[in-house]
Design a protein around this nucleic acid. Sequence first.
DNA 1: ACGCGGATGCTA
DNA 2: AGCATCCGCGTG
Length: 198
Amino acid sequence: MASVRTAPKPLTREVYARDADVVARRLLGCVLEVRRQGLDDVPRRARIVETEAYLGESDLACHASRGRTRRTESLYGPPGTAYVYLIYGIHRLFNVVASEAGDPHAVLIRAVEPLNFEARTHGPGLLSDALGIGLDDDRSDLTTGRIRIVDGAAPARVAVGPRIGVDFAAAWADAPLRFGDADSDRLSRRFPSHDPTP
DNA sequence: ACGCGGATGCTA
DNA sequence: AGCATCCGCGTG
């Protein structure tokens, strides 16, 4: 009998309800899907290959470390909420809220591999442009909205390193909270190779 | 009100 | 290494 293609289901809220470093690793290999109303019938789909974890108010690199403001309001929402903000007046960065409501953890999606379209997606600003993610998506619910994440196979090898662009964050700057599919050719930047030697 | 600086990406 | 470009936030 013919195989039935089961519609992929979005990750459930409980998948997001863990500390951001756990969720950041979990999201590698999962597929980000964005329906673009009026532009596509078919959602754009892309495999997540690089993430960073931001661990709440005590994490000096996390926006919530400066307290709860209007911009960071979405970080305080339930896990599975989108946090999208403008950086350098130019780029929109897409994050997934993790942990639990009131504990502002986030996972920044830093790079994806396009699955059913062509675009440059090897950076957090680039992928938002390619997928059509904008400030309007801030605070949207990833379990019900036009942006969703469906499960996928975890990468065979995971690279780990310090986060990018957070040198100001004192001791937190060096924490190993950036994760990547070590075999992807679309990472935003090279990971420090703790490669051994020959 | 006002000035500052940033979870980037491109060019030199 | 320098710059574009603009919103949110801290200060007045």
